[in-house]
């Protein structure tokens, strides 16, 4: 699949940075990335960075159009939801990927592979309305009180009935994010496991190992990069999701004492807050800076994920082919 440098073609003009000059069109995605960064940097004027920006203090006073704009609360909310969702999605999509590549016969795994591909196409806002209208009442009245009774002794899962009211909150956000991330992580994990050389697997089986032993000792060690890369790319998707999270997380600027309480994330906050910020220049500026922070984290996570994963696998997984 990868582009193979062909000996039949003339050698590239120049090398190093000059090679870039010779291929202006290949730069267009780079131009777009650069434009995004430049526009956001220009809009933020970098005025609020430093000082209270890297703190948990968020306090905005609309009357004076001023306040302290710490990114801390949003960062914590983002980290909690994304990491919890990723742990769940990672485990579940590993299970699905192994089922599809190892245990299920082709007649079952082919349609199920297509099905998991189809799930990637369901719009995030659809997950959001399902979460808010259908799931939230169920979470608030049934699931969360049950969790309080059964595992309430675990810190974060206790609290009073008032905490679960409404059902929106961290737990529901984690649930929705988990389901949204699974198609992507599953696709990359599946491709990584599928690309494990057949002779290695068959050598293991021929030595008398069971399928699970071969999976654990051979497939995992060969596919390790792709499996980790899937987690990183899934993490990037989870922290960037704005709409569905804004709908189900309860949208309150706080770090709740239990997982049932409302909170917010960087992406969802800058999404639902922007229209009320049009009239407040200082708030608007803070939001742009949050967007920059989010962009920086997303790019770093994405590049790390790409380094771990073979690019063909990302292509095969996310290109739908």
């Amino acid at each position: 699949m990868a582009a193979t440098p062909s000996p039949a073609l003339p050698p590239p003009r120049g090398s190093g940075w000059r090679a870039w000059l010779g291929s202006p069109v290949a730069l267009l995605p780079l131009v777009l990335v650069a434009a995004i960064v430049i526009v956001l940097l220009y809009a933020s004027e970098l005025r609020n960075f430093g000082g209270s920006f890297w703190s948990l203090n968020y306090l905005f006073d609309p009357l004076t159009d001023s306040g302290s704009f710490g990114v801390g609360i949003f960062a914590v909310g983002t980290a909690i939801t994304a990491i919890m969702a990723l742990i769940l999605a990672g485990a579940l999509s590993l299970a699905i990927a192994i089922s599809l590549t190892v245990y299920l016969p082709p007649i079952a795994s082919r349609p199920l592979t297509i099905l998991t591909n189809l799930l990637a196409g369901i719009p995030s806002v659809v997950y959001g309305i399902w979460g808010y209208v259908i799931l939230a009442p169920y979470f608030g009245s049934t699931l969360e009180p049950t969790l309080q009774n059964v595992i309430g002794f675990i810190p974060g899962f206790g609290g009073t009935r008032a905490d679960t009211a409404g059902g929106t909150g961290l737990l529901l956000a984690v649930f929705i994010l988990t389901i949204m991330v699974i198609p992507l992580t599953t696709a990359i994990m599946r491709e990584s496991l599928r690309n494990v050389p057949k002779d290695l697997v068959e050598a293991g089986l021929a030595l008398g190992a069971t399928q699970w032993e071969v999976t654990r000792r051979v497939r995992f060690s060969v596919a390790r990069g792709g499996l980790w890369g899937a987690l990183f790319l899934g993490f990037g998707r989870a922290i960037g999701e704005a709409v569905a999270v804004a709908m189900v997380i309860g949208a309150s600027v706080q770090i709740p004492s239990t997982f049932y309480g409302g909170s917010t994330t960087i992406a969802s906050f800058i999404f639902y807050q922007l229209d009320s910020a049009f009239t407040y220049p200082s708030l608007l500026q803070a939001l742009v800076e949050y967007a920059l922070v989010l962009l920086a984290i997303a790019v770093v996570v994405n590049v790390v994920g790409q380094r771990a994963t073979h690019s063909d696998m990302i292509a095969a997984a996310t290109g739908g082919i």
Binding site: P29, V33, I239, G240, L294, L295, A298, V299, V301, G305
Partner: peptide
């Protein structure tokens, strides 16, 4: 990387 830029950004 462009594919990884959050939609809201």
């Amino acid at each position: 990387v462009l594919a990884g830029v959050p939609a809201i950004v």
